[in-house]
Design a protein around this nucleic acid. Structure first.
Lengths: 340, 340
DNA sequence: TTGAAAGCGCTAACAA
DNA sequence: TTGTTAGCGCTTTCAA
């Protein structure tokens, strides 16, 4: 049973290719094709399980019905969850997803943009590394819908969805201060990205305004987690005065908790903890960890809605929408009042 | 700057379309095109950033260079990690990935297979739900390379990569028995899939041979985790004799640990724990949890290698490779010797 | 080495 | 309502 084409269907049913095509595309009524014929064709198509070639259609129409999703790493739980939610909503609208992991690598991302481009994807959802402004702007200039999330690029004028990083970090830091902690560290991955800069800024602001000194550790990301855990351990040992720490991301938090466990530090007695991103590890840690929870569902929903809007719009351009969502501080035992 | 076509390149360089095409496909030497010309064309292509349309090429050649990846849910950390590793290796070989989450839903999966089929994907990596034997067999009959993983379908004769579920579960159960536990429960998601059946069987075998009674809870999966946690709580409360429990999957383990935390049960004093799949939550739990770790890298590597082999082979058929990998019991404090 | 031309399967303008 | 036809951009055969 070889693959059928529209032509075959038409021949089998002794009707025209055009009619089949119109019926397939739901334009039967518009083209005034008899309901009787429509039914006959649909029944036949059903029977033989005919599926028109998306490739051929794509070549002809210039639409691929594919959305390119570029994230730092699809295995990151935050991005994996977003990917899942986006997939669901996109699917309902007839779009499929091709994903790429950028590793936050500028050159790799440029290449990946080209890869998606040659596949004629209809729209892009990008959590961009720094340095790809030019490439994304070219995409936009070529009329492609692009939505950024998690971070944005100041020099790229297109929709984005982010959280209020600065406020969230400041708020969490102030919370620690209110609980009685004074020497509060900030541990995060080194990054020039907007979201990390915002978190860092909020942390520094809170401390500065209250007159306390910042202690910052920027971890270089490596695939070998042990190395990163060791970095955190060294930092904690080198700064025994610390009584609290804010982690800038879930992986930083995971490394930190492992480091603290290995150092046999008690939470919150030896060190209070708050981390960005909520995750099972924080809920289940020996002392449940206070987390700055991102509204993941809302982020995913906004992202795909914005993209679908642009996809529908046709007319390109339109107002640029910059969405900033609020986080929620989920207070748990790790940030309890300082005992002394 | 509109999109270039091969034709434009040829015109700009005053040479033939054919030459450009051959050079693009690395067949210049074979076609005895002068090195000088090749260089000139490559330089120009570089300069203007020309990328041939993958769609047009796909239509012409029948190859899409896309691999379809179908997993239960891309947000599941196990599948997300696999997806990432597969992406990397596939990318090196020039393949891109379209993913779909099946939700383990038979009808949805059938539809998704068709979706991938109409996109002309070159190969399939599937972690199949039950009931899609017919559809997958059709794929295979049509000459499509298919590799299954995590579980397999007995009635589908194609490559697969799984772990030794039965042995792993039996081994873990025996370990608990050796540590002095006697009333050992098994908590898992309800499933007729091979991997879960294997785990169940191994668990039962160990208990039967040692003369102890099984206690099984099969959780119905729901997106609302609270419901599942409650189910586990009810089960634990209803079976106060339990002194140990084996979780059949990481999510079951997560639900279980949450339930136990809420019930203020101490591990391992009130209940010893071992879970399938290793994960940060197990490492970081108040009492670190013994885990049956799957060799994720090896699984991903095997899966994509098998698929690439088949993709290269052309000749279809070939011997069916059924790979069974070993797991590793990572012993932690949650399965310490029973105190009494 | 090069050029012409067919055709992958589909859509859609146009004519009937 | 229906049929014809011209491409979409690329690969590849064949002849020059």
């Amino acid at each position: 049973m070889k693959k059928l084409r529209i032509k075959d269907i038409a021949k089998d049913l002794s009707i025209s290719k055009t009619a089949v095509s119109f019926i397939l595309n739901g334009r039967a009524q518009e083209k005034r094709i008899s309901g009787e014929l429509v039914e006959r064709v649909e029944k036949y198509i059903q029977e033989v399980g005919f599926r028109p070639s998306a490739i051929a259609r794509g070549l002809r129409t210039g639409k691929s019905n594919i959305i390119g999703l570029m994230v730092e790493s699809i295995s990151d739980p935050f991005f994996a969850t977003i990917a899942r939610l986006i997939e669901n909503e996109a699917y309902k609208e007839g779009y499929r997803i091709i994903y790429c992991s950028t590793d936050n690598d500028t050159e790799k991302t440029k290449e990946l943009i080209n890869v998606l481009r040659e596949r004629n994807v209809d729209g892009y959802i990008i959590s961009p590394p720094p340095g790809v402004e030019k490439e994304i702007n070219e995409l936009i200039k070529a009329g492609m819908p692009v939505v950024m999330f998690d971070r944005y690029l100041a020099k790229v004028k297109t929709d984005y969805v982010v959280i209020d990083n600065e406020f969230s970090a400041e708020n969490a830091t102030r919370y620690l201060l209110k609980q009685g902690y004074r020497n509060i560290g900030f541990i995060t991955f080194s990054s020039s990205l907007t979201q990390m800069k915002g978190r860092m800024k909020g942390y520094r602001t809170a401390l500065r305004e209250e007159g306390w000194k910042p202690y910052v550790l920027e971890i270089d990301f490596t695939p070998d987690e042990k190395v990163m855990v060791q970095t955190v351990k060294d930092f904690l040992v080198a700064n025994p005065k610390l009584d609290a720490v804010l982690f800038g991301a879930v992986q930083a938090g995971a490394c930190g908790l492992k480091a603290m466990t290995q150092l046999k530090m008690k939470v919150p007695q030896d060190l209070a903890v708050i981390s960005f991103d909520d995750h099972d590890i924080f809920e289940l840690f020996a002392t449940p960890v206070t987390a700055i929870a991102q509204p993941i569902e809302k982020i995913a929903h906004k992202v795909i809605s914005l993209l679908l809007d642009r996809l529908d719009a046709e007319n390109g351009a339109g107002v640029v929408k910059e969405i900033v969502l609020k986080t929620r501080l989920k207070v748990r035992a790790s940030s309890g009042v300082k005992a002394e």
